[in-house]
Write a protein that binds this DNA or RNA. Structure first.
Length: 573
RNA sequence: CGGGGUGUAGCGCAGCCUGGUAGCGUAACUCGUUUGGGACGAGGAGGUCGGAGGUUCAAAUCCUCUCACCCCGACCA
């Protein structure tokens, strides 16, 4: 592309709404425009990145014999009613109706559509497994869109779906997809981690599910990992603590703790370690038809992992219990404990708590704590023990190594769905015995536009983006400095020669000052910058090649240009 | 939805407290000089001050309502 023919505008100042590097740089480099909250226009250079990402995905999907399809973005409400998600996803979906009053929605995901395709297409186990994918626009009316492309409402996603006769086949399909995903993100030049994840509403507890996380400081997810062989999303990570020394079987007594509402205050006052006390949290679990209240007990210096609690309870959502409800349950805020409270309150202990040891807890009495509280002796309610705590650095992973935590951006997620949709939508096939079975499904997503943003988050500097060559909008930024016809002809010649050699070149023939071109080049972050400077060229007849990532430069003569650049491209790949 | 914040030219901001009819920087436009890190000079253009209502002789400014957007939480590729 010649910039003199292109529509491209960069900016010196960036809209204040952009807070993270990818959002700021995409706007500054004129690659995207916002058209509404969480909705963006992709301008030419962004589109080129997107297309490159898509093509890598296509190649890797093709390699595992997944077939590309395109499902409609608008889907009929009837399909969603069959699966039961029409009402369930009401808040996430934009729902509307046509002139005939028929319900429609903008697809936030496509399990229903693909299952519908499947049930019309496949009648026999002999046709299994089936693997289909699409790369398409999704719309999710997110509660809070943010960070530009990182969490948009409209975004591009690759979603793949597989159908299998049995679990064994599903596992094989899942592993293939797992490997394909590894290849995809590796080829994109991204540093990423594959982590054990929480299945959320998508699957059951036995379903395998992994997330692909691009490592970046601005990531929204915490990844708990050890060197080598363990990585899990903090939502899921089940680690254990080390070096705890609990007190044994003390007698229980009341301690006056006026106005000491934090564990820190109480423990300092009594002179114990924070983990020798128990933290009491009150949660209300909500189902469509009922509510239940829970008292969650954790070691004093641990934090609750709400997702673990929600998964254990199996409710629709979880709320902090309201103050008046707490009063009804006999709980005094700041001094809550598992004694003297209502029978309507179910007590759950975190698994790190040794029920036979003694702790400081709230006494459910104003300005009072209990010392020497031993769950097995001083509490008559049922003692349920579950892993509820949030993993911390230094904990031990299942492999016995101490874990660390780093930030990640979830760019891919693979799930085993089971027969949830095939059952609900009666997508059945005949097995060998001629009996109807509901095939097992897997679903596999990649956030294409999010991946573009994640690549920037991972790789940029104060001057702009630094693209991995496999997804850069172009491979080479060719800056031409000089105004004489001679230089212009030379530049155009070189440009044509490079293009003819199959190199992707962005030719800056705008005739701007060198500073402006270099600033734009750095901002756009193409891996290789080629400069034709009239002044220098007259002296030594050479061009300059500079690498965006390292800043290394070298001088090259005209005849070597194509071969040197081709080698650089190879080195960068 | 709860909490916090912002809306004035494409973008970044000042003006608002103490009402008098809008300004700075930058980008974009024209002319000229510049050409290895956003260069300089000159000229011109661009705004229903988010919207509605109210107070007032007079509202960007004060009052009421409303909308949009951003940030913190639940959601997720």
């Amino acid at each position: 592309m010649r910039l003199s023919k292109a529509s491209w505008q960069t900016y010196k100042e960036i809209p204040k709404e952009a807070e993270i590097p990818s959002h700021q740089l995409l706007l500054k480099a004129g690659m995207i425009h916002k058209s509404g909250s969480g909705i963006y226009q992709y301008l030419p250079f962004a589109l080129r990145v997107i297309q490159k990402i898509e093509n890598i995905i296509r190649q890797e999907m093709d390699a595992i014999y997944s077939q590309e399809i395109t499902m409609s973005m608008v889907t009929p409400g009837d399909l969603w009613k069959e699966s039961g998600r029409w009402d369930l996803m009401e808040n996430l979906m934009v729902q509307f109706h046509d002139r005939g009053g028929k319900d429609l929605c903008l697809s936030p995901t496509n399990e229903e559509s693909v299952t519908d395709i499947f049930r019309r297409l496949v009648k026999s186990y002999k046709q299994l497994p089936v693997s289909l994918y699409q790369i398409n626009t999704k719309f999710r009316d997110e509660i809070r869109p943010r960070f530009g492309l990182m969490r948009g409402r409209e975004f591009i996603m690759k979603d793949a779906y597989t159908f299998h006769a049995d679990k064994e086949s599903l596992d094989i399909g899942y592993d293939e997809m797992y490997k394909a995903y590894s290849n995809i993100f590796t080829r994109m030049g991204l540093e990423f981690a594959i982590v054990e994840a929480d299945a959320g509403n998508m699957g059951t507890n036995e379903s395998k599910t992994h997330e692909f996380q691009v490592i970046a400081n601005t990531g929204e997810d915490d990844i708990v990992y050890t060197e080598g062989d363990y990585a899990a999303n903090i939502e899921k990570a089940a680690t254990t603590r080390v070096g705890l020394e609990f007190l044994n079987n003390e007698d229980m007594s009341e301690v006056e703790t006026p106005n000491m509402r934090t564990i820190k205050d109480v423990c300092e006052f009594i002179g114990t370690k924070q983990y020798q006390s128990l933290k009491s949290l009150v949660y209300t679990a909500v189902w469509p038809d009922r509510e239940e209240h829970f008292l969650v007990m954790l070691l004093g210096d641990d934090e609750l992992n709400e997702l673990k609690l929600k998964n254990y309870i199996g409710c629709n959502f979880l709320l902090m219990t309201k103050e008046e409800t707490m009063r009804d349950l006999g709980l005094i805020k700041g001094f809550i404990g598992p004694t003297n409270c209502s029978e309507n309150l179910k007590v759950i202990y975190d698994k790190e708590i040794d029920l036979n040891c003694s702790y400081i807890v709230g006494a459910n009495k104003k300005d009072t704590h209990l010392k020497g509280f031993t769950p097995s002796e001083n509490c008559n309610s049922e003692k349920v023990q579950v892993d509820l705590r949030t993993a911390k650095p230094g904990d031990l992973a299942p492999n016995g190594k101490a874990v660390k935590i780093k930030k990640g951006i979830e760019v891919g997620h693979i799930f085993q769905l089971g027969d949830k949709y095939t059952k609900a939508m009666k997508a059945q096939v005949l097995n060998k015995e001629g009996k109807k079975i509901s095939p097992l499904m897997g679903c596999y997503g990649i956030g294409v536009t999010r991946t573009m943003a994640a690549a920037i988050e991972q790789s940029h500097d104060e001057n702009g983006m630094i693209w991995p060559i496999s997804i850069a909008p172009y491979q080479v930024y060719f800056a031409m400095i000089g105004k004489t016809d001679e230089t212009k002809f030379l530049g155009l010649d070189i440009y044509k020669e490079l293009v003819a050699a199959g190199i992707e070149v962005l030719f800056d023939d705008r005739g701007l000052g060198p500073g402006q071109m270099f600033k734009d080049a750095d901002l756009l972050g193409l891996p290789i910058r080629l400069t034709l400077g009239e002044r220098d060229y007259k002296v030594d007849g050479k061009f300059e090649i500079k690498l965006r990532k390292t800043g290394d430069t070298e001088k090259v003569s005209k005849d070597e240009l194509v071969s040197v650049i081709k080698n650089k491209i190879k080195d960068l790949a």
